[in-house]
């Protein structure tokens, strides 16, 4: 296969996922402006961080005057799963130049990984595999930037009764529910939900981080129940 064919395959396989990504980007753009960010900040955050759920969490926490350290830690925690994606990609990309690995690491998001890793596992011997990840990653990048821009500039014109901000928790629900596949993951959700509610009602600053830590500890402690 030629480079351009592998690249195009990445683009075409990534396109259907944009049905979910595009509205999410618009919502992020709207929320960012409503949270007090300038259009430039809202737009450039999508290129600088380039991580949907973490960007939404960032603007939500900014709007509720959350301490800076909590925001940074939350963004890092939400994106920490990309560390595992990168480990599993390393096997296929280790022979590439540093320049390539920098570009592909930047483009390594949930949706690009989900499509490209399938290709990498199923057809590990085809040439120019990295062009597939370039195709999926660039498709997602362009879609995310365009939808952010639409949210930033069109947001104010959307009807109020829609209360589009509610799409954010719904999107997070759609992301995490399929992850609940075992007793331990179920207990993580229950523990972090209840500790979040209690800590929030006690007005504790680092409630997201503390309840997240409680959830992970409960998960690790109960992981034996999965076997």
């Amino acid at each position: 296969m030629k480079k351009i064919e592998v690249f195009k395959q990445g683009i075409f396989e990534e396109l259907p996922l944009q049905l979910g990504v595009f509205p999410f980007g618009i919502i992020y753009g709207i929320m960012a402006i409503e949270s007090g960010l300038t259009p430039m900040q809202a737009f450039l955050m999508s290129s600088i961080i380039f991580g949907g759920a973490s960007q939404v969490a960032f603007v939500q926490l900014i709007s509720s005057n959350t301490p800076f350290g909590v925001i940074v830690t939350t963004v890092g925690a939400i994106n920490s799963r990309h560390f595992l994606y990168s480990i599993s990609m390393m096997e296929y990309l280790k022979s590439l130049s540093l320049k390539w690995r920098i570009v592909l690491a930047y483009l390594l998001t949930d949706e690009a990984y989900a499509i490209s890793i399938r290709k990498f596992i199923n057809e590990p011997n085809i040439s120019f595999l990295h062009f597939h990840l370039l195709g999926t990653g660039m498709t997602l990048f362009l879609s995310w930037q365009t939808s952010t821009l639409m949210g930033v500039f069109l947001g104010g014109d959307l009807p109020q009764f829609l209360d589009l901000q509610f799409i954010i928790p719904l999107t997070f629900i759609a992301i995490i529910v399929p992850m609940i596949k075992s007793v331990s993951t179920f207990l993580v959700v229950i523990a972090s939900a209840f500790s979040g509610l209690i800590l929030k009602s006690l007005d504790i600053n680092f409630w997201i981080i503390i309840s997240g830590i409680i959830g992970v500890v409960i998960g690790l402690a109960s992981s034996r129940l999965d076997k």
Binding site: R81, F172, V188, K200, G212, G219
Partner: peptide, 22 residues
């Protein structure tokens, strides 16, 4: 294992916060 739990443990309290009225 802990990487597997982190997104669940961090996103769940954010969902709870968005669904709750305090």
């Amino acid at each position: 294992n802990s990487f597997k739990y982190i997104p669940l443990a961090v996103l769940t309290p954010i969902i709870i916060n968005d669904l709750s009225i305090f």
